[in-house]
């Protein structure tokens, strides 16, 4: 990517951070149409609400993102096949596929416990270096006027012996609203931790606990920003109470307090 393309990409990312997050999908498509050289890089960088596809082998739904995409087809975590079918698809190793199957099952349990419904799909893929691999955990819940999408991207690297490092970049996209009040947006956070692996399945528990911890943290953050921060900002702009009266009250209190102070000094 040339320097000028990098600048255009930065401008596109900046624009998507400023324009209404509820329109991220259409704005992203619009920018890609206006500037095709940066389109591919932009599509793989920007998180947007997850698409749902159907695995025609077993009629099960699954979530799609750039990580399980090959051309216009998406790999299903259920059958490991691409829909629509493609010739010569990218394949993952048996070892990684086995882990992927277990990870999907474990996150089914997680999803039921925290979301009581919705969809979850996990994808893993091999990295060039030996035991290293990467993956993504996707979760989605759609309600009448609200939608939650979480995208947890993972990089797992062998450090030494039994020790592995887990790098996590998580984005939650949350649209929520009723009547004339609409809140939409996304937050992204990164974290890294190390943990031991004695047998391959330990990766599942390590990843599971790490994603759970991160998602709980992000839910708390969303709570604070969506319902606390926004209200504080509105309250800062306009006060329901009369500020002149508030200031006069404070002045009176100060006078009383200083009056008491001088009396005590006596």
């Amino acid at each position: 990517m040339s320097d000028s393309e990098q600048q255009q990409l930065d401008a596109a990312l900046d624009l998507l951070r400023r324009t209404d997050p509820r329109n991220v999908a259409s704005n992203l498509a619009l920018i890609c149409r206006m500037n095709q050289p940066i389109a591919e890089e932009l599509l793989s960088t920007v998180d947007q609400p997850l698409q749902v596809n159907t695995d025609l082998d077993n009629n099960k739904k699954y979530l799609c993102c750039d990580y399980n995409r090959d051309g216009d087809s998406y790999r299903s975590p259920h059958s490991n096949k691409y829909f629509p079918a493609i010739d010569d698809p990218i394949e993952i190793s048996d070892k990684i596929r086995q882990l992927e199957v277990t990870l999907n099952a474990a996150f089914d349990t997680y999803r039921e416990l925290y979301f009581e419904g919705g969809l979850s799909s996990c994808y893993l893929w091999d990295q060039e270096d030996g035991d290293n691999f990467a993956g993504v955990v996707l979760l989605q819940k759609v309600m009448k006027q609200s939608q939650w999408d979480s995208i947890h991207v993972l990089e797992v690297e062998s450090v030494s012996g039994k020790e592995y490092s887990y790098k996590l970049s998580s984005t939650v996209i949350l649209d929520i609203g009723h009547n004339s009040t609409k809140l939409g947006g996304s937050l992204t956070r990164q974290a890294e931790k190390k943990a031991n692996v004695f047998e391959p399945q330990d990766h599942i528990a390590n990843i599971g606990a790490f994603v759970e911890e991160m998602e709980n943290r992000m839910r708390a953050l969303l709570h604070e920003v969506y319902f606390g921060k926004t209200r504080d900002i509105i309250g800062d702009i306009r006060s329901i109470e009369n500020l002149k009266e508030v200031r006069a009250d404070e002045e009176r209190k100060r006078e009383i307090a200083s009056g008491l102070g001088s009396r005590q000094a006596l």
């Binding site: 951070r17 509820r22 609409k182 996304s186 937050l187 920003v225 969506y226 921060k229 926004t230 509105i234």
Partner: peptide, 13 residues
């Protein structure tokens, strides 16, 4: 309201 620390959140009412 626009909030944009490591994200992009918008409230409209």
């Amino acid at each position: 309201v626009h909030y944009f620390e490591e994200g992009n959140v918008r409230l409209k009412s």
